[in-house]
């Protein structure tokens, strides 16, 4: 075997697992989905065709716009909420907690729930927010409420709270990672040059942490956008999200073509968001790094 050809072989060997992965788990399934999206539903199931009826239906029937915009709204609230909680927490861990052992423990406290089943964590919120739940009992015991309120569970707020809780590790981890990498010397230099703490935060620390925030935001957003358990567990009659509609097209309606078209539209939206957030991240790097 000659040296150049073994080099080529080596390159192929290194590249082929990811290529194979992409081909088998991305390209093939999405191609099938793409083909399905032009098929048509005919009793009792569906049959091959080439027509744009499914996409037309998504555009013309207002229920799809409603569900998509509701899902966008909820995903946005969850990502924002998670960010507002996660950033101070990560900041506190990196800059305020002096003991590294304590920092480790507090970090694990956020990440550890990931080891527990999502369903279990979401169920827990049912027992907290329910009419006879912990929150109501607490509010009644301190005299804020005279009788249990039903406003905490089975609505969009309950979904947002549950999803923030479920996905917050994905926000804390990347923010923690970038904050930890910011050299202390930078903030010290800023302070030495007479810049106050607050301005140092906004001029040095925050810009440098943008990649982490963007990464966390993107992950939380995409996870929420595709969620369909929270509506089922803690959502009310107005809780339907786009993943539930897709599930019902593949299930109840036995309309895989429409479900496939919806899935592709959803993927397009997610891709757009990932692209935009990527731009944001580049922006942060170009300007500040």
């Amino acid at each position: 075997m000659s040296a150049p050809s073994s080099g080529r072989l080596w390159r192929v060997a290194v590249l082929s697992p990811p290529l194979l992965w992409t081909f088998v788990f991305m390209f093939i399934p999405y191609s099938i989905l793409f083909v399905y999206s032009f098929w048509e539903q005919v009793y009792p199931t569906f049959q091959p065709a080439f027509q744009f009826g499914n996409y037309l239906q998504i555009i013309t029937d207002p229920q799809y716009f409603n569900v998509l915009s509701r899902t966008l709204k909820i995903a946005l609230f969850v990502s924002l909420g998670a960010m507002l909680v996660a950033f101070p927490y990560a900041y506190f861990l990196v800059f305020k907690v002096k003991s590294s052992a304590l920092r480790q423990v507090l970090y694990m406290a956020v990440v550890a729930p990931l080891w527990v089943s999502y369903l279990l964590r979401a169920y827990t919120w049912k027992t907290i927010l329910g009419t006879t739940g912990i929150l109501n009992s607490f509010l009644m015991s301190i005299g804020v409420l005279s009788e249990p309120s039903s406003v905490f569970l089975y609505n969009q707020t309950a979904m947002i709270v549950t999803l923030i809780y479920v996905f917050i590790p994905f926000m804390v981890m990347p923010i923690y990672a970038v904050l930890e990498k910011i050299p202390k010397s930078l903030t010290e230099a800023s302070n030495d040059l007479g810049v106050g703490r607050l301005r140092t935060f906004f001029l040095v620390t925050l810009p440098l942490s943008i990649p982490g925030i963007v990464a966390g935001f993107t992950m939380t957003f995409c996870l929420t956008f595709g969620d369909f358990i929270a509506p089922f567990l803690v959502g009310g009659p107005d809780g339907l999200m786009v993943a539930n509609v897709i599930a019902s097209q593949f299930g109840a309606a036995l309309n895989w073509p429409l479900g496939a078209a919806l899935a592709l539209v959803m993927m397009l939206i997610v891709l757009t968001i990932v692209t935009i957030s990527d731009r944001f991240e580049q922006l942060g790097k170009g300007k500040f790094a």
Binding site: Q41, L240, L254
Partner: peptide
């Protein structure tokens, strides 16, 4: 419901998506 099933399912989804 035969061929009417999707119409029913769609209407039910529409109720839930409002």
């Amino acid at each position: 419901l035969g061929a009417r099933l999707p119409t029913y399912t769609n209407a039910w989804n529409a109720v839930k998506s409002q």
